[in-house]
């Protein structure tokens, strides 16, 4: 085995601990159905659908759950006649 590779490694357990803390904080919160990010996502999508026909391929929703700050990015391609809701 490669010694340099072995000795240059840092412990991976702290990374595991940190990742789990962030993830579980979000998951425990959402089991009471209070995942803010998910609620925002759903309500924003509902508002968009009210005003234009939502073409799933033209809407990209990205989330990044952080320890203290999370981000929600909704990217919508609005066509010229996007104001008309196709019924």
């Amino acid at each position: 085995m490669n010694l340099k590779r072995f000795f240059s490694r840092s412990a991976s357990a702290p990374a595991a601990r940190e990742r789990l803390q962030v993830l579980l904080a979000h998951e425990r919160a959402s089991s009471g159905d209070s995942d803010l990010l998910k609620t925002l996502r759903d309500e924003i999508m509902a508002v968009i659908a009210k005003h234009m026909q939502v073409d799933g391929d033209k809407v990209s929703v990205k989330m990044e759950r952080g320890a203290s700050v999370s981000t929600l990015a909704v990217d919508i391609e609005v066509p010229f006649d996007g104001g008309k809701k196709a019924a």
Partner: peptide, 23 residues
């Protein structure tokens, strides 16, 4: 795979028509 903080939609959402596959 290290993507746990970025999950927006899932397989069930796609199957139930709540999200497009690409999303």
């Amino acid at each position: 795979m290290g993507a746990e903080r970025r999950v927006v939609y899932d397989l069930v959402n796609v199957i139930q028509g709540e999200a497009k596959l690409a999303q």
